[in-house]
Nucleic acid binder design. Structure first.
Length: 239
DNA sequence: AATCGTCACAACCGCCGCCTA
DNA sequence: TTAGGCGGCGGTTGTGACGAT
């Protein structure tokens, strides 16, 4: 952003010692922040907070803007393609959330971090293994990621045969196609493995995921009973 | 209907590196 | 050169929503 709130003279001793607000943001606070940034641009968050008349720390304003109010923030469920990208990038970079977020347009590091903690770590916990263990990494690489690839491909195939938005939901197909385009370029450029290799691994394990999926509408529940059995057989998890 | 447990997500905290005076 | 301020990042916590009992 170009315009910085550098010409703010709205400071007084009272302001300096005012009680800072914490906790959830109100609609009024959001409005103030949006208005101020629309006029003056973002950056220099401490003085921005003062000049905008917000009884918040600069950090709090920055976080609220970047994670919630920014117009290009994408909200809603993490798509399959995004899940695949997160797993792929995390396997390369670890907990470098902001770096990972740079490759998922509209997603924030906070959102990705939350996704990892609530979904991925949950499954590690269910498998009674450490999320950083080789076992779990193998499970991700040889089961979870190939499955995501299959699901992405299946969704794309279904979409191509479908002309009616009513059957799949127009928004979902659009979002899926958009993300697939992005993820395929990124994943394909991976120096370690790409979609083809992932699919190969998937077939090597000789699993009939298609029928499995038909019988199990797991969708967001990434590991189901059969998966646990498979993991137990393949990776000797103690369950 | 009430209570409890779990999940998802927003927000805060502490640390670190960079910049500037 | 250095000290202080600031922004960015990753870890952690608080809390509302929701489902199970």
């Amino acid at each position: 952003m170009d315009v910085k709130p550098r010409d703010c003279v709205h400071q007084s001793n009272e302001d300096d010692h005012m009680e800072l607000r914490r906790g959830p943001w109100t609609v009024e606070e959001d409005f103030k922040l949006i208005e101020y940034i629309a006029t003056h641009g973002e950056g220099r968050w401490n003085s921005l907070a003062r000049c905008a008349g917000l009884k918040r720390t600069g950090k709090s304003c920055r976080l609220r803007w970047l994670n919630y109010l920014r117009p290009d923030v994408r909200r809603g469920n993490i798509t399959l393609e995004e899940q695949l990208l997160i797993l792929e990038l995390h396997s390369r970079w670890g907990n470098r959330w902001s770096k990972i977020a740079q490759h998922l347009p509209g997603r924030t590091d906070n959102e990705i971090k939350n996704y990892w903690r609530t979904r991925v770590q949950k499954h590690a916990k269910q498998l009674k293994c450490d999320v950083n263990s080789k076992q779990f990494k193998d499970a991700m690489r040889y089961l979870w990621m190939p499955r995501l690839v299959e699901r992405i491909q299946a969704a794309a195939a279904t979409a191509s045969y479908t002309t009616s938005d009513d059957q799949l939901g127009g928004a979902q197909v659009t979002s899926s196609s958009y993300a697939l385009e992005n993820s395929s370029t990124t994943v394909a450029s991976s120096d370690s493995f790409g979609t083809r290799e992932l699919s190969g691994n998937y077939y090597n394990h000789n699993m009939d995921f298609q029928s499995l999926e038909q019988n199990n509408p797991w969708l967001d529940n990434l590991f189901n009973a059969e998966d646990f059995y498979f993991l137990q057989q393949q990776f000797n998890f103690n369950m």
